[in-house]
Structure formats: C-alpha cells, structure tokens
Design a protein around this nucleic acid. Structure first.
Lengths: 165, 165
DNA sequence: TCGCTCAGCGTTATAGTATAACATATGAAA
DNA sequence: TTTCATATGTTATACTATAACGCTGAGCGA
C-alpha cells in the first residue's frame, strides 16, 4: 500500500514528517495544481527530504550521480529547484546558498528557519506573529513586502546537549 | 571643522544619517575599541554609506579602482568586509550576496532590512519585539541563536508611488 | 499520419561570489 | 635593530549560478 498524504494542522510540527509521506503530498498537490512533478523534480525533492538539512545544488548533483549514475548539469538542477520553490515544496536558505524541503507547501511560505551551525540540520517553523510584525513594520514605512527571509543560525538542542557532555 | 559623531537614540531613524557623520562615528568607535579602521577599511565603509544600497564585493573593487586607480584583489576586500562586519559597521545581505553599512554599530546587530526590488535601496530597522519573538521560538525548542538574518524584499514607498503614476 | 507546439531536459560555456595559501609591508614593542 | 603582530598584496582556484542554444517527447489539431 502506497504512502498516503496526510494533512498537518500543527504549526509547530517542526517539519517532523516522514519524507515519503511529504513526497506523496507533493505528488498529490502537483496533480491538483496541474503542474508536473517529473521524475527529476521528485528525486531532488526526495533528496532534500532525506538530507533534512540545507543542501547545496552541487551536492544534489553529486547525490543524483551516486544514486542514478546520472550526470546532471547545474542548469538542470537549478531549474528543478526553481520549480520546487515556486510550488512551495522547497526553499532556499540564503545564508548558506543551500536548499531545503518545505513542510507545508499547501500553506503559504511564511516560515522561518533555525539552522544548527554544528550539525547543519534545519528546522522550519511558522509563526504568524512574526509575519504580522514584519508586515506592520513594513506598512509603517509604506513598504510592500514580496518575500521574507528569516534565518536563525545557532546551536540546536541536541548539539548543545552533546557539547555539554 | 570636522564632522562630529552624534549619538542616535531613535530606533526608527531608518538609517537616515549623513554618511560622513556615521563614518566619523566609526572612527571614534574603533579608537575606543582599540581596533584599526585603516584607510582601506574606511574607504570601503564610505563607499557603502554613499551607495545606500546593498553593494557586491566586486562592485566595491570596481569603485575603489575608479576612485583611487587602486587595483584591489578580492581577498583584500573580503577581509575588510569581515572586519567591518565584526565591528558592527556593516552587514551582509544574504539574499543579495551584497553588503551594507550599518547604522548603529554602537548597539548590537539586531536589525532587519527592507530591500527594494526596484531601486535596490535598503532600509535598516531595529525591532526588539522581533528579536524577542525569535528568541522565544528558539527557546521553546532549546535552540541557542547566534545570528539572525531577517531580510524583507519588496517595493519601497517611493517606487510604489512612481509605479502608480 | 503528419506536422505543430510547448514544456522539460541536456550541453557548453561563462558569469559571479568567495577563499586558500603564501608573500610582502608596516609599525609598535623589546 | 630585531622581533612580532597585524594588515595588505598576489596568485590561483573553489564554489555558486545562469545564459544560450539544441534535443526530445507528449499532446493536439489538420
């Protein structure tokens, strides 16, 4: 029995979903939207989910080559990433020039990311209060936001614990 | 009479200070801190202040060459930028791979940036509520932040007005 | 069936951003 | 003067991203 996509209403799930389940959601969602989640695009989304951390485009190229013996050029990967981002399935982590799978493509891309300097994992969070604050600040100066980049670098709980050992 | 640095207590000044005055402040501050704001570093800071928008490292190299007929290599510029950032005098805009002068080096680097897609100018804002929110979210999951990147891309009031014409 | 179109992908070359590694200079302290 | 630390210069190269053009295959109407 194939994995079924499951709606998630928890804004604090912190991205904790089974990769296969989220990929199934992506497939369903792209079907609804009438856009093509091709094999390449799906593979890249899977790689992002499996890695669980911001992954560089060239790392993806290397991973595809390992997995498939398929040599993919940079433009091909960048185009796939562009698609995934446009569909809300992935996001670029600007402070790392790297890409992560997004947890809730069915909702807007209004999340912030916490990235651990030590282990490299990232956690996605949605916080409407933050979005509102930014909108408020923007409105005060007549600025119309089109994109928010909120990335917090630091040490995750797990790494902090193992450092303290 | 030389320009004197003037303290600024307005968290909403939006970076509206005379470049020369802010550079004077930087000189004073580096003196107090016992670090060297060398000619090169000062020149780069001036260029950032004069530009008023996120400026790429290679643009700075070109500008220095125009101004001084001085050919500077990338490592030299990147090292100067590293210094300015460490001193809170400048900040990297991650979403643009570019650098801006910072308004309040005497305070922490807890600001967010609004960058206009149309004219390229950026406005720096301090919002403690935002910092608190992020800290709160981080604390809930045991994450210890070391750096916050908050960049908002959009259209500034001026460009919105001229578009509407 | 044929040929058209269009989206997606492949390929080559190159642009743009950043750093490693090592050499030189400069100035203050011993 | 020697020594040391800090800053800058130089060369080469790594890493990130895109332009430009060509190929292919699926869908569609003539």
């Amino acid at each position: 029995m194939p994995v079924a996509p499951r709606p998630c209403a928890d804004p604090d799930c912190r991205g904790r979903h089974a990769p296969a389940e989220r990929v199934a959601l992506a497939i369903a969602l792209c079907g609804e939207r009438g856009v093509q989640l091709t094999k390449l695009r799906r593979q890249i989304l899977e790689l992002l989910w499996e890695s669980g951390r911001p992954t560089g485009a060239y790392d993806l190229i290397a991973a595809l080559k390992r997995r498939d013996a398929r040599p993919i050029g940079p433009p091909t990967v960048y185009r796939a990433l562009e698609f995934l981002i446009a569909q809300g399935l992935a996001s670029k982590i600007e402070s790392r020039n790297a890409y992560v799978a997004c947890t809730h493509p069915e909702r807007g891309q209004e999340s912030l990311f916490f990235i651990c300097s030590s282990c490299g994992t990232s956690v996605e969070l949605e916080d409407q209060r933050l979005v509102h604050l930014i909108s408020e600040d923007a409105a005060r100066m007549g600025f119309r936001p089109t994109r928010r980049v909120v990335e917090v670098e630091g040490t995750c709980a797990r790494c902090a614990a193992s450092d303290a050992t």
